[in-house]
């Protein structure tokens, strides 16, 4: 077998596992971060335009005034091999929770595209399989951001979720996942390839903090949040569920202004503009 890299032309695709001496100039990094990343650079004037945000949850109520247009809505089930089967979802939201998450995104990133992937509502039994299938389907669609305000405690799903989280990471889909409010092992929020979110008690939806002691990486507004709910109304709610879409929305703002950022770069930007690092300047 001959050496593979030294004889390649500049147009050849580089192998992903090594970098020959003369090839460093062929891997320019897009979206270089400036010397100082602040909120104005990161999200100033941003609206989320051009960014797709998937709400993996209980569905979204159509025509809710605080949610607006839903670009697509599917209901996920599984076939006999536990592969995802997506059907048009005409039932909307079976609980209110997905609508709430969508409303949080819409409020902060008004021009983002919102997609609903419903994984809850067909009965409890088998819900873990449907959650995995829904995430697999969402990752296959290549949404820019997937909001997961839920998790599973089933360890047998941990490996599959880990693999999906890594696939999403390398495909530049951002998974934003709720940390559990209770001291239990659950997934996928504990994986480093996702952005995990817990709650703080302050009322400003754009205030968020980086956590130097993960696995919870960021804290966003999650207490006494007025959120969209069923029947076109609102409800006051508390839980990491509602902090998570705030970070998803802020991530959408960053990506809409700086498209093509990798999840690694995006997480770095979120860290740099968090309120306890350098983010006091508001957009």
């Amino acid at each position: 077998m001959t050496s593979f890299a030294l004889h390649e032309s500049a147009d050849d695709e580089l192998p992903a596992w090594s970098l020959p001496r003369d090839a460093a100039g062929r891997i320019p990094i897009d979206n270089l971060l400036p010397a100082r990343v602040d909120r104005d650079w990161a999200i100033g004037g941003a609206t989320g335009a051009g960014i797709s945000v998937c709400i993996l949850d209980s569905g979204i109520e159509a025509s809710h005034p605080l949610v607006g247009e839903i670009k697509s809505a599917v209901n996920i089930s599984v076939d006999e091999d536990e592969n995802p089967v997506a059907a048009d979802d005409t039932e909307g939201d079976l609980c209110g929770h997905g609508t709430a998450c969508a409303g949080v995104v819409r409020a902060l990133a008004p021009d983002a595209e919102i997609h609903s992937v419903r994984v809850i509502g067909a009965g409890f039994s088998g819900s873990g399989s449907v959650l995995i299938a829904g995430l697999r389907w969402a990752v296959q669609q290549g949404y820019d951001i997937v909001n997961m305000s839920l998790s599973t405690t089933k360890r047998r799903f941990g490996d599959a979720l880990h693999e999906l989280a890594d696939t999403a990471y390398f495909n530049r889909s951002i998974l934003v996942a709720s940390a559990h409010n209770m001291p239990v092992e659950s997934y996928p929020w504990r994986f480093s390839s996702v952005i995990s979110v817990g709650s703080h008690e302050e009322p400003d939806p754009l205030v968020f903090y980086a956590n130097p002691n993960p696995p919870v990486e960021f804290f966003a507004r999650g207490v006494d949040v007025d959120v969209a709910w069923l029947g076109g109304g609102t409800i006051r709610a508390t839980g990491n569920s509602f902090a998570t879409p705030a970070i998803a929305a802020i991530a959408a703002l960053v990506l809409s202004k700086h498209p093509g950022l990798t999840p690694f770069q995006l997480k770095t930007v979120l860290y740099l503009i968090s309120n306890n690092v350098g983010g006091e300047a508001r957009a």
Partner: peptide
């Protein structure tokens, strides 16, 4: 289903 806690106020506004 979600194995996640939830705290809600004004649930009477939710007709269903």
């Amino acid at each position: 289903s979600s194995r996640t806690p939830l705290v809600l106020e004004d649930v009477q506004q939710d007709p269903r």
